[in-house]
């Protein structure tokens, strides 16, 4: 499973209020949420992001609220993966549970620049920066989490376990 697209850079401690402000949480419709993704960090981002693009951020991405609307909004906006130095705990769980690919790679997150063309192999965690020619590898997931990811999220995983 390979994806390629453009990098959108964000800083450290991107909180879930920046990712999807609470004023839009009276809906949990993914397309509705996608219209406002990252709005308070960059008011026009949702209209600029293209399907397949990447968010590249610093430490503690997704801190704050437990709202699953945050990874849902990012995924529905067309983002193929979030690459960050580190992720906040609940966002990390939520992303795995709903099937938004996340990659922890401090080196990639540091070096990739806004607008760089990125290619990611979601199975191996290899990140290629096509603009700079550099390659990075993300931390692999523990086996059990990889099983949830492979199943397509927590609900699918539970369904397969039930059978």
């Amino acid at each position: 499973m390979k994806s390629s697209g453009q990098a959108w850079k964000f800083g450290n401690n991107i909180d879930t209020d920046l990712i999807i402000p609470a004023r839009y949480l009276n809906s949990h419709n993914p397309q509705e949420l996608a219209k406002h993704a990252m709005e308070d960090a960059d008011a026009t981002w949702a209209s600029k992001v293209q399907k397949g693009d990447f968010i590249v951020a610093g430490d503690n991405f997704g801190c704050g609220s437990s709202r699953e609307h945050a990874p849902i909004a990012i995924k529905a906006a067309g983002v193929s993966a979030v690459i960050a130095k580190s992720f906040a705990r609940i966002f990390y769980r939520n992303a795995i549970n709903i099937g938004l690919p996340i990659l922890e790679s401090p080196d990639a997150a540091e070096a990739i620049k806004e607008g760089d063309e990125i290619k990611v192999n979601l199975v191996t965690g290899e990140i290629d920066n096509l603009t700079s020619g550099m390659s990075y590898s993300a931390q692999p997931f523990p086996g059990f989490m990889q099983q949830i990811i492979d199943a397509g999220g927590l609900i699918e995983y539970i369904k397969t376990k039930k059978k």
Binding site: S66, R67, E68, I90, R93, N94, N97, I98, P142, F144, G153, L154, I155, I158
Partner: peptide
């Protein structure tokens, strides 16, 4: 501890949750 909606859904069905 806080979790997201999918973890809540799974716990409502199974009474269980995974942790690191």
């Amino acid at each position: 501890t806080g979790v997201g909606s999918t973890d809540m859904a799974a716990a409502m069905a199974t009474g269980e949750v995974w942790f690191k």
